[in-house]
Design a protein around this nucleic acid. Sequence first.
DNA 1: CTAGTTATCGACAAAACTGTTAATAAGACT
DNA 2: AGTCTTATTAACAGTTTTGTCGATAACTAG
Lengths: 212, 212
Amino acid sequence: MTTSPKSAPAKRVRRSAAQARALILSSAQTRLADVGPEGLQIKEIAAIAGVTHSTILHHFGSAEGLRTALAEQMVEKLLGDILAVMDQRETMDPGDHTILFRVFEVLSDDGNARLLAWSMLKGTNLEQGQDTLKGLFDQLLVGVVDAVKASAGDMVVKDSVAERQARFIIYLVASTAVGDGIAGGYLAQLVGLDSDDATSGFRDWFAGRLFS
Amino acid sequence: MTTSPKSAPAKRVRRSAAQARALILSSAQTRLADVGPEGLQIKEIAAIAGVTHSTILHHFGSAEGLRTALAEQMVEKLLGDILAVMDQRETMDPGDHTILFRVFEVLSDDGNARLLAWSMLKGTNLEQGQDTLKGLFDQLLVGVVDAVKASAGDMVVKDSVAERQARFIIYLVASTAVGDGIAGGYLAQLVGLDSDDATSGFRDWFAGRLFS
DNA sequence: CTAGTTATCGACAAAACTGTTAATAAGACT
DNA sequence: AGTCTTATTAACAGTTTTGTCGATAACTAG
């Protein structure tokens, strides 16, 4: 035997509350990515974090509390990522759709797409970040309207037409990004695109088509 | 009391095994639509079906067996719907994208999108129907290649170029349909599209843009 | 009508998941 | 040092979910 017969009390690691929460949330996210929402049980998560399930209950109150905290954390990250992209908006010329595709990337990122799907399935409210997101899309709209009008060249385009078209474009990019993030790998395989074509190749092509 | 005091043995309904399985699967699907994957517990499903949970175990072996059977049934339905659409393919002219948007409708149908999201999240294998789906997409590819070449008009289009473009188009339609089905309502609200514009309006616009 | 098959049920057992409590130990602060 | 806070744990209890078993009733076949 390598252990002493009287079973020594086993040293404890004592983290700060913030550190413990972060560790547990990280473990939960790992678990979510690995086996999906069904795997979000505190016993398994505790095992990954290297703590007991009691510790999780101490920090989050309940199992559902942990899941809510996880969802909140991921929503915040999503919003933060999009915000970071939007902060660079001043640097873009009219007609430059770089921003749109940065948003595409953020949304189609695997973790974010899965979060969205998870939230939709469990009917969870993303309402906390809804106003923020709404504002961001409104902001985006201004730029895209400009791009639409610019792409029309000399032709006179009524503002209302350009705006409607801009909304369609944003909606198209957003829904495509979500679908791409959730089912992209699977669909690419079915359609017969290799991984290069399914990402950069497709996005370049998509970008070229958008403001035709 | 309307019931006799000695609690008469209560008549049993005896279905065929096939009927019983169908009834239970239907109840499970209802439950899935109502409260999401978390609600797929045999006790609740049994209550909806009007049987005991033992009956479910008898027909499906285990709770997970029921869930697998449900996923299989829904995948089969999805494949069947797409197949039905494909059967009408002969009737379309080159350059007619009707078929593409029938597929769009099938995929973006709420139930199918939720199924897809559910499957993706739980890492469930759609491999059973994968070969069939692959064949369907291959079939679809031929039609879209024709459409691309037709839409190119007089311009000379190399087959390899047209095929790559066709793959992109299919990928775009599929991923858009998935994203639209899963998050469409939410996204439309954020972008500021009313429900009419978010469905028929958007799809018409999308169709017009596709083969430009 | 009889025998056989099996879908169905009820009651119980087992397992999984969540939550509670009291004790302990790691660190902070005086 | 000593004291206080609290993160951590072990052991236990409650609840939910799943699974088992024997009996029964509904239908079929002969």
